[in-house]
Design a protein around this nucleic acid. Structure first.
Length: 532
DNA sequence: ATAGGGTTAG
């Protein structure tokens, strides 16, 4: 490139659209617009700022100025605008009408289009083109192909290109690492990660998020820490989001707070994704107020941010606030989606707000165009069942447009338990077992239902039946963080620490609470006898 | 002169 052209390019960065339009008319008058380079610069400049203007300009260009560069730039712009059909049409015109062969730029833009469409068939046609024209080992084409095959779940093809490649760069490696993660081969991904010669912040983030995807949250956090101690790289936005997701699952509050402080310290932009990740981390760690603060700090809130906080409030006993926040969401013009309605309906259910819940359920399809799914019916049945409206709940189950799943029937069964309708409960369990929908939780519910009405023989029967049929309930599990260490508690845990330290403390708390209740009821307090 | 890989809610 000539020095004069380079300085013009730099100068171009300072122009506004209006100035560029002025330059354009000036060029038109002086006849310079017929110069392919000048015309190309105008298209490239406008394509990223005002697409429709660039498009019009392109369509009026004289034939001489429709260079491969201009076509590529327009194809890229069309792909960015998600106008994949038009991008393809332009490509065809470029080849047939203007007589250009696709080059490495053309092919990489077309591959991006195929990847976004998940269209591996068209993608492999361009793959063939690339081979025929000798572009297949060009970095952007090669990496584009790997990305395409990874996205479309054809890991073997991605792997073949990788293995045959003699010019792998950091993008090549990272694309394949993601492919392995997507195909549940997180260990293979880690081996690649260890093997790759250079890593940047994107490759670290990809591996951190790979562990998160695989549910290996401790490994994700270890890697997040290693990134800072070993690589000297600063965790990027995506890395931070991945680490926060891991903290949320582990209940690792200290680590999560540290990351929040890091976000503040480095002035990382609290955008919708990062904000939501923070809200969710605080939510899962039980810090409702911190979650609220992050939410208020965010400059833009989308359906994810709202739903995340609504879910947080609903899960921590603030159902009323959750429903209020739903109202605020509507006022601020953010459209709820199916997940939002699950959270809101379960809030209504816990609050016993039957009418309001029914109204919201009805509004789903009427006002928001969202057809209720099986989970929404589950919430509705739960809402009616908890309120003791078992007949209505049964009618909902009968009238639903899809087969009830174990959660819908489980919600009805729970209603039976709470309101002591053992007969209906028994019928239900039979139908649940007949439909082969029984999971451990259903049996436990039935046994609890018998227990609540003191039908101990039946309790024993259910428990025995569970043993005989080898019905397993996923054990209840929770975790807390103490001094930076995450400690897990699982039902049936009989470890020394638990039996010798935690259980006596729990007994003391229970006795203490009972004595307090006695005091409240006017009875004589016995608190002093309850210390160890 | 035009370009690629990583991230949020039930």
């Amino acid at each position: 490139m000539k020095a004069s052209q380079r300085s013009l390019l730099l100068l171009e960065q300072c122009f506004t659209m209006t100035q560029m339009k002025q330059i354009q008319s000036h060029l038109a008058v002086s006849g310079t617009l017929l110069d392919p380079y000048a015309a190309g610069r105008i298209v490239a400049f406008c394509a990223v700022r005002d697409f429709s203007y660039a498009h019009r300009f392109f369509q009026h260009l004289p034939h001489l100025c429709r260079t491969a560069f201009v076509c590529n730039t327009m194809i890229k712009a069309l792909v960015d605008e998600k106008e994949h059909e038009s991008a393809l049409a332009l490509y065809k015109r470029m080849v047939t009408d203007y007589g250009f062969l696709p080059n490495n730029y053309t092919l990489s833009f077309l591959l991006t289009a195929c990847t976004q469409l998940g269209d591996v068939c068209s993608g492999s046609i361009y793959h063939c083109q690339a081979i025929r024209l000798g572009w297949e080992s060009y970095d952007f084409v090669q990496n584009g192909l790997i990305h395409l095959y990874v996205t479309c779940n054809v890991l073997e093809s991605a792997r073949r290109i990788f293995d045959a490649s003699v010019n792998r760069d950091v993008v090549t490696w990272t694309a394949l690492i993601n492919g392995c993660v997507k195909s549940d081969q997180v260990e293979v991904a880690r081996n690649l990660f260890d093997e790759m010669p250079d890593k940047n912040a994107v490759s670290w983030s990809a591996m951190i998020n790979g562990y998160v995807q695989a549910g290996l949250f401790r490994e994700a956090l270890e890697l997040f820490n290693a990134m800072q101690t070993l690589s000297g790289l600063r965790p990027s936005h995506a890395g931070v989001v991945g680490a926060l997701t891991a903290c949320a699952f582990l209940g690792a509050l200290d680590q999560g707070r540290w990351i929040h402080a890091y976000v503040d310290r480095t002035k990382m932009k609290l955008d919708r994704i990062l904000g939501t990740a923070l809200i969710d981390m605080y939510s899962k760690c039980g810090c409702v107020d911190a979650a609220r603060r992050v939410f208020e700090e965010m400059e833009e809130r989308d359906v994810f941010a709202f739903t995340s906080l609504i879910s947080c409030l609903a899960n921590h006993g603030h159902s009323k606030d959750a429903i209020e926040l739903f109202g605020r969401m509507l006022t601020e013009g953010v459209a709820p989606n199916e997940v939002t309605f699950i959270c809101v309906l379960s809030s209504c259910s816990r609050m016993g707000m039957v009418d309001h819940g029914l109204e919201i359920f009805r509004s789903m399809s009427k006002e928001y165009g969202i057809e209720p799914g099986v989970q929404h019916y589950g919430c509705l049945v739960d809402l009616l069942g908890r309120a003791g409206m078992l007949e209505e709940a049964k009618q909902v189950v009968r009238g639903m447009p899809m087969e009830p799943d174990s959660y819908v029937l489980g919600a009805l069964l729970n209603g039976c338990r709470v309101h002591g309708d053992v007969e209906l409960g028994r019928e239900l369990v039979e139908s649940i077992i007949q439909r082969k929908l029984d999971h451990g939780g259903v049996h436990v519910l039935l046994s609890n239902m018998y227990a609540s009405t003191s039908q101990w023989d039946d309790v024993v029967k259910v428990r025995k039946g569970m043993e005989e049929n080898r019905v397993k309930k996923v054990p209840g599990c929770s975790s807390i963080e103490v001094n930076g260490e995450v400690r897990e508690f699982v039902v049936g845990d009989r470890s020394v620490a638990l039996v010798e330290e935690v259980v006596p403390l729990l007994c003391w708390i229970e006795k203490h609470l009972k004595s307090l209740r006695l005091e409240e009821e006017g009875g004589a307090g016995v608190a002093e006898n309850c210390f160890f």
